[in-house]
């Protein structure tokens, strides 16, 4: 993961630089009347400094410091053997969420979430279509009644809008 860390810190450094340039183009005002650009300018410098620090930390050969395994916030996940990971599923799930968001407004909540659930259930390892469809429909129906009818979350109803009003 070392290469990943270097790339990521470099990426944040680039974000920091762009952020700072944009901040410098905002009116900074004076200390007695700070403008919109003053605070972002400070944050931008902070971001650049820390990202640079992280980058150097990754590149430079380091002596053993405090970052033992116990210092990691989520030790259990990282210690899992990487070769067993199924990275494809992350892409599948991301694509699924993007798809849902894209069709939500046009197809409406009920259809979108139902389709979403069917695919999600399959991604998580359940392979039979008909029960998956049934489960998805039940969950979608329950969530429609509880969120839209009871809790009045104004979810887009799409083509159902005319019928359900």
């Amino acid at each position: 993961m070392k290469l990943g860390s270097v790339v990521f810190a470099g990426l944040i450094l680039a974000v920091g630089l762009v952020y700072e340039i944009m901040a410098l183009n905002m009116p900074r005002g004076r200390l007695s009347y700070p403008g919109p650009g003053l605070f972002p300018m400070i944050i931008g410098l902070f971001l650049i400094a820390t990202a640079l620090g992280c980058l150097l930390q990754e590149i430079l050969p380091r002596k053993k410091t405090g970052e033992g395994p116990s210092a990691s916030p989520l030790p259990s996940q990282d210690s899992a053997a990487p070769e067993g990971r199924n990275v494809i599923k992350t892409f599948q799930l991301m694509a699924l969420m993007i798809g849902y968001t894209l069709v939500l407004k046009t197809l409406g909540f009920l259809i979108s979430i139902c389709a979403f659930l069917v695919v999600a259930i399959r991604i998580f390892g359940y392979r039979r279509w008909v029960p998956a469809l049934a489960m998805a429909a039940v969950i979608a129906g329950i969530s429609y009644v509880s969120f839209v009818l009871w809790l009045k979350v104004p979810l887009p109803l799409g083509i159902f809008e005319e019928i359900l009003g």
Partner: peptide, 16 residues
């Protein structure tokens, strides 16, 4: 389960 779904949805529509 299938029947339950149908009944449920019918009720949901009808209440509206």
């Amino acid at each position: 389960t299938g029947y339950a779904v149908v009944v449920f949805l019918v009720v949901a529509f009808a209440t509206n």
